[in-house]
Amino acid sequence: MENYLNLEKLSNDLKNLFQNQNQNESYFDFEIICEQNQISFKAHKSILSSRSQYFKSLFKSKMKEYQENKMILKDVSSSILFPILNYFYSGKIEINLENAIQILIFSSKYLIDELIQISSNFIKNNLQIETIVDVLKLSEAMNFN
């Protein structure tokens, strides 16, 4: 039997690691800038590449982003990027009526399978007559499965 692990604490510690954005003790080595509102987040290459196939490939390629230790994201708002980065660290994300569709768009673009699953389930459960047409159109356009 494995020893008892306090996964809750692990999740919390990692969340704090990410959220203390201005602390030197976090040893950040990478920066992600949202072009839309020029807000940036600091992060760790090791965490990102271990949690996302996209980032793993990005670092492995040794291209510009790897050389400069930063990347610029177009078309993404910091209000979406923050919970997603937070998810990479803590494994937790709050999905609500406000952000569900944006999170689905992001995770489907960057192939984050677990988030695609969670957010699209949330959307399915909250479909209403007023929104169903728009959601379907969007779904078609964004290549959701």
């Binding site: 990005l58 291209m63 510009k64 982003e65 050389q67 610029i72 177009k74």
Partner: peptide
Amino acid sequence: NASTLSFEELYRSSYSLVI
């Protein structure tokens, strides 16, 4: 000669074409 290219830009271009 890949080191000066932006991975994200290339990824995004491929994504846009498919979308």
